[in-house]
Design a binder for these strands. Structure first.
Length: 523
RNA sequence: GGGCCGAUAGCUCAGCUGGUAGAGCACCGCCCUUUUAAGGCGGGUGUCGCGGGUUCGAAUCCCGCUCGGCUCACCA
């Protein structure tokens, strides 16, 4: 077997390098190479022939580009000259200005750019000729001293450089970057190379997730991992993906939620647990939905949904002030203000407010169903619960820009929640709406095994009527409840939407590195 | 799944009611040692998404398809 690391040995010192076509692989797909790709492959061959290692194993470096800019950009020309800072800095060539026997170019580390000045006189004629074999997109490591040009730009005066990697394709245009949304998502690496603000969004995403871990760890929660492949897709109402385990000859579902497993852990005495991981729902794709998405779910014993509201306010406000250093931020045309307390309104009152109907009208079920049918004539089988849903979606949701807790939605769509105190038809539950999106969903968990079983069975009846969005009957979970689930508050927060909010992105695909796209043959 | 919009050079885009395919950047050649969307002179590198049709002639008009965006539906 060929050791992949030795695929490209250094050219032998005694003669010209081996067959250029195998040394410098062409584009991975398609027989047609563009003129620019042929030129790049040829320059690559000549560079290797001149002694460059085509695939060096590592680069010594004293600084990163972003580190240099942060540390030295503010120094004056005189201060920088006096400091005599010698650097070895690797990066990707992003632009070149070639001027006879000297050139300026910028290298990037994906976050920041720094200019390099190379003169034949300083670096040597041979090195300068090698430099001219490099292209925009190539990686190299530059050794030299920092100075400022007469326009005041921090620049490395190149004494020598080492080739690091070849870019065999031309990069997108320097001024407009890469605009094509499809290409940006299919080749996210190109998006990251050309559009630095994209990298910032994903750095923010990373910061959000590590902040959340610190938040919960600091409150005595433990992080757990529960099955992604489940024999029953429970914990939410959604269509699952199905897969199959061969050895067990068993159909399994990719989880739509971790909820029932996390609550089994609370039964087992893990009083505070959280999980950050992917859920999978086999449903439509749009600007707020990707088939796989990331949620944090957390459960705390001896708490109810009012406690979870307080915790949620603390979480959102702390996250925002720690990561954005302020308590309000733009989202599209709006300014979102995260100040405690968030508005709290009951589901029914929100419906009344949005529809303009008096709250009492919501006791008149036929009237409400008729109203919903007029709002959405295309939706045929309208139950009372469904009607409330329609009114919420059409009349209420988009108006909820500032953070708002919607309290006590109907119990019939909350099969895992306790009933609200003294109100049998309402669930002890809230949803947090921000910028017209549902960001969080929490309830006082249903702990009564008999009622849980009855609710599951009721869902089973719904399913028989053809409603696919029902919760499966999970008797194993009921048995867990029979061992005793203490009063527990639980909540889920959609990480993708949370990042959309903080990063001011209107599409979930802008906060998922590789959103699901239909595969396509490369051109 | 329905509706609307889009796909033209490596990238960003123009191309009208049908008449030999264009610009900027990038690229190639020549000049240029503090430039920075460097500059000067010269060069267009293309399966106009794919497949049919209409026509003397199609990037352009018609039909079908693929992929994407927005939107509605479905759905947190």
């Amino acid at each position: 077997m060929t050791d992949p690391k030795n695929r490209n040995p250094l050219p032998s010192p005694s003669g010209p390098p081996a067959a250029p076509e195998t040394e410098a692989p062409g584009p991975a797909d398609g027989p047609q190479k563009s003129e620019q790709e042929l030129v790049r492959a040829d320059k690559y061959r000549r560079l290797i022939a001149a002694g460059a290692n085509p695939f060096p194993h590592k680069a010594e470096r004293t600084h990163s580009v972003v580190g240099l800019v942060g540390a030295y950009a503010a120094l004056s020309t005189e201060e920088l000259a006096a400091a005599r800072v010698r650097v070895v800095v690797p990066g990707r060539i992003m632009s070149v200005r070639l001027m006879g026997k000297a050139s300026f170019f910028h290298i990037s580390d994906g976050r920041s750019k720094i200019q390099v000045y190379i003169r034949a006189e300083k670096a040597g004629a041979e090195a300068y000729e090698r430099f001219k074999l490099l292209d925009i997109g190539d990686f190299l490591s530059v050794t030299g001293e920092l100075f400022k040009t007469k326009t005041g730009e921090l620049t490395v005066l190149c004494e020598s450089f080492t080739f690091m990697a070849k870019c065999l394709h031309p990069l997108p245009e320097k001024w407009h970057g890469l605009q094509d949304v499809e290409l940006r998502h299919r080749r996210r690496y190109l998006d990251l190379i050309m559009n630095p603000e994209v990298g910032e969004v994903f750095r923010l995403r990373s910061a959000v997730i590590s902040w959340l871990r610190r938040f919960f760890d600091g409150r005595g929660y433990i992080e757990v991992e529960t099955p992604m492949m489940q024999p029953l897709a429970g914990g939410a109402l959604a269509r699952p993906f199905v897969t199959h385990h061969n050895a067990l000859d068993l159909d399994l579902y990719l989880r739509i939620a971790p909820e029932l497993y996390l609550k089994r852990l609370v039964v087992g005495g893990m009083e505070k647990v959280y999980e950050i991981n992917r859920n999978f729902r086999n449903e439509g794709i749009d600007s707020e939905h990707n088939p796989e998405f990331t949620m944090i779910e957390f459960y705390e014993a001896y708490r109810d949904y009012h406690d979870m509201m307080d915790l949620t306010e603390e979480l959102f406000c702390g996250l925002c002030s720690d990561l954005l250093n302020k308590d309000e931020f733009p989202y599209g045309e709006h300014v979102i203000s995260l100040k405690r307390p968030f508005r709290r309104i009951k589901f029914r009152d929100a419906l009344a407010e949005g529809s303009g109907l008096p709250a009492a009208a919501f006791d008149d079920r036929p009237r409400i169903i008729k109203y919903a049918e007029e709002l959405a004539p295309e939706k045929k089988p309208v139950t009372y619960g469904k009607a409330l849903d329609i009114i919420f979606d059409k009349r209420v949701k988009e108006r909820l820009i500032q953070p708002t807790f919607i309290l006590n939605p109907p119990k019939e769509v909350s099969p895992l929640a306790k009933s609200a105190a003294g109100i049998s038809e309402e669930a002890a539950r809230f949803e947090l709406m921000v910028a017209g999106m549902e960001l969080a969903n929490a309830f006082s968990e249903l702990t009564d095994p008999a009622e849980q079983k009855a609710r599951f069975e009721q869902q089973g009846e719904e399913r028989k009527k053809g409603n696919e969005e029902t919760h499966p009957v999970d008797l194993d979970y009921v048995q867990a409840l029979e061992y005793g689930l203490p009063p527990t508050g639980g909540e889920g927060i959609g990480i993708d939407r949370l990042v959309m909010l903080l990063a001011d992105r209107r599409s979930i695909r802008e906060v998922i590195l590789f959103p699901l796209l239909r595969p396509r043959e490369e051109k």
